[in-house]
């Protein structure tokens, strides 16, 4: 385990990681509340993007419905808390199990029957949309009028039931993001990680070498789903309200995958870099448009779309790989290699 996690990172890579972590750990001491909420959002997208990246970046299975697992995780934990007083950490177990089972069903249906490529992507959308409309009609979970967690003014932070100030969530999400980075690195360097990349590059070739393609793809879907549902738990307890129309909506799925794609698909740091760039850009855009009095709804989204267009036209492999090469981090870790070329 130690070998997988630690070996092969160059010394200045550790230094950069340590400095960044130290800066982020100290940040709440000197930044204002607004920036804290922005950083929480960044960590959330970075974490969810890392989870999605396992499926797409490592194993090559394009999911466009990851909001499904966020939503299932959020509703599982929030439902248990609201109705039965079960704490979120136990609820997290339920969230992981439920989304894991759903992922097994989806993966089994798709991979057993050879549903791949675009069809698989659309199947993931279909599952998420099915859940969105389904949850709209579950009275027990508030249906379309929403599920609300009790809120009050907090003086202290209750870590056990996740009731507290934003700073608590700040540190939780930061830890979550860093843990995910470690998990992803171990997965990528494990035997399974090599199998995944073989499948991503050429599924038939991988199969002919004796790799159990079905099993490996199932692992990717389930691990990715389980990790994403944990993000959902924190989502529920941070925002304290859940609406099927919002949580399961396809735009949530798209938000999750933009970070890794902008940052660099299949890389370890790409999803994190992408989350930083996108969220800061988006927040900065809001401020900028207010300065220029362009407050009509939709103006921000239009610029967002144009920015996406520019990035995807000019930097098809994402922002991180060229940076990794420039920093000399690409040699051993393979972070600078474009991995998504079509043969």
């Amino acid at each position: 385990m130690k070998k997988l996690l630690i070996d092969g990172v160059p010394g200045h890579g550790w230094l950069m990681l340590a400095v960044t972590t130290a800066l982020l750990l100290a940040a709440p001491l000197f930044v204002n509340d607004y920036l804290i909420t922005v950083l929480i959002l960044i960590f959330y997208f970075a974490y969810a993007g890392q989870a999605w990246n396992i499926m797409m970046g490592f194993a090559g299975q394009l999911s466009l419905g990851h909001a499904l697992y966020v939503g299932l995780g959020a509703y599982a934990a929030a439902g248990l808390y609201v109705h039965f007083g079960v704490g979120p950490w136990i609820g997290m177990g339920a969230a992981i199990i439920i989304s894991g089972v759903v992922a097994v069903i989806l993966g089994y249906l798709a991979f057993r029957f050879g549903v791949g490529g675009v069809y698989f992507a659309i199947l993931t959308i279909a599952f998420a949309e099915f859940a969105r409309i389904g949850f709209d009609h579950i009275k027990f979970l508030g249906a379309s009028s929403g599920l609300f967690l009790p809120v009050k003014q907090y003086v202290s932070n209750d870590l056990w039931s996740l009731r507290g100030k934003p700073v608590m969530f700040y540190y939780l999400m930061l830890v979550l993001m860093l843990v995910a980075l470690g998990i992803c690195r171990m997965l990528l360097r494990s035997r399974l990680g090599y199998y995944w990349r073989a499948i991503r590059e050429d599924e038939q070739a991988a199969q002919s070498l004796g790799i159990d393609v079905f099993r490996c793809k199932m692992y990717a879907v389930v691990i990715s789903a389980a990790m994403t549902s944990v993000a959902g738990v924190f989502f529920a307890f941070y925002y304290n309200n859940l609406f099927p129309e919002q949580v399961f909506h396809i735009s949530r799925s798209i938000e999750i995958i933009l970070g890794p794609i902008i940052g660099g698909i299949g890389t370890l740091v790409g999803p994190i870099v992408g989350a930083f760039v996108l969220t800061i850009f988006s927040e900065g855009m809001t401020e900028l448009l207010e300065v220029f009095k362009l407050t009509s709804p939709g103006a921000k989204q239009v610029f967002y779309g144009i920015a996406l267009l520019v990035v995807i036209l000019l930097m098809p492999h994402g922002i991180w790989p060229p940076i990794a090469r420039a920093l000399g981090l690409a040699e051993k870790s393979g972070e600078g290699k474009p991995t998504d070329e079509k043969p």
Partner: peptide
């Protein structure tokens, strides 16, 4: 280009259309 690249391209176009 790979599928996800095409996907982002058209999602961006769609985003611009809806909001315009």
């Amino acid at each position: 280009r790979p599928e996800h690249s095409q996907f982002i391209l058209l999602v961006a176009v769609a985003l611009i259309m809806v909001n315009l």
